[in-house]
Design a protein around this nucleic acid. Sequence first.
DNA 1: ATTAAAATTTAGACAAAACTAAAAATTGAT
DNA 2: ATCAATTTTTAGTTTTGTCTAAATTTTAAT
Lengths: 218, 218
Amino acid sequence: MTRSEENYLKTIFHLGGHEGVPIATNAIAEQMDTKPSSVTDMAKKLADKGWLYYKRYQGVFLTDLGVKLALSIIRKHRLWEVFLVKKLDFTWDEVHEVAEQLEHIKSEKLIDKIDALLQFPKYDPHGDPIPTKDGQFQQRDRQLLSEVPLRQKGICVGVKDTSTSFLKFLDKNHIALGNTIEVLEREEFDDSLRIKIDDRELHISNQIATNLYVKTTT
Amino acid sequence: MTRSEENYLKTIFHLGGHEGVPIATNAIAEQMDTKPSSVTDMAKKLADKGWLYYKRYQGVFLTDLGVKLALSIIRKHRLWEVFLVKKLDFTWDEVHEVAEQLEHIKSEKLIDKIDALLQFPKYDPHGDPIPTKDGQFQQRDRQLLSEVPLRQKGICVGVKDTSTSFLKFLDKNHIALGNTIEVLEREEFDDSLRIKIDDRELHISNQIATNLYVKTTT
DNA sequence: ATTAAAATTTAGACAAAACTAAAAATTGAT
DNA sequence: ATCAATTTTTAGTTTTGTCTAAATTTTAAT
């Protein structure tokens, strides 16, 4: 499997192509910052290899094998992210770029040892679940903060947007995974929220609230 | 710098092309398991980039910049080897292949953090010196065991051959870096040696002795 | 000095992965 | 149902790094 092939499988998975729903060539091209014609070429190649289904003009979705392969890349990516944060003191906004490279290292022993060193973490620094060695993968029960009813309490468990700018914003406002969050007030006009986070009060825009995942507690 | 370019620079350095001595196209091709014509093509390209000197039919040698770049790859390779052994319990015969991949990861921060995590090691698991961040590089004072005079004592500090078979042979005979070695007897006929290693006596062939480095003590 | 052998380069080709421009199929609005 | 807009594919090209086969240069032996 080439690096490019791995990146296609990973992207298609992230776009939802693991559930039998076909993904448009255009969507893949946009996500990967490439041209639709390049995606078509690669789609044919990956279909030949038995990693995805492709019908002209109908988009693609992954085969079972394709899903398995995609998950193994995602597993590596997320484990390396944890490694960078826990063992090398990277911040959560610095890890993505390096993990994009490390995820392509081919050594089963290496990633298993990293997994063990980290004591088999279940989530990456952004709160995304880490697939197991045999491709088990379950999303944690969670809601966007924007969907949480008034007065409901929860724990911050993940971010949807993982851009540097968003993560740095959260750092600046001392919002981190594990914090307790309660929605105190919702402003009708712009859907901004007044929240209690640990023991501080904070006003956040709807754009922030739609990018923070919360696990509600009772 | 592409992965292929990095491999060429590294190989040329290892063949001695860092001291103004030109290295033959053929030698590079053989070392890299490729064809001389491919080497010629790449030589032109690397010369254009200012990383080596190339004159038709005269071989190549590295520029100062080329040496610097080669050393940065070698630094990464050796630091990753130490990491694999010290932090992930790889054996010294398993590390090369994985380090060949890891050495191409592009992140200055990453390798500096790995360096710090390992507490700035000076030598890799095979006893080869690790260049510093600014390209300082000094070979330890050492001799091949085959060159050591009778009755001379020394410490085993490195291996010349890093093949799996040789390293596994050493493991089997409990020869490891750090062991004290004394040459008790040299057999004229085949240059084999009777040695004392720590507190055991051992008979080793000349082929073994010419692949073990020793630092003589007093 | 000649010449055969060895080393090296050139020329032309190929595969992977991308691109552009043009053609074809699909979608959506009327 | 038609047609314009959008999406997707096709055809042909490019770049990188490799290859083979043929040509050239160097080396070494006489």
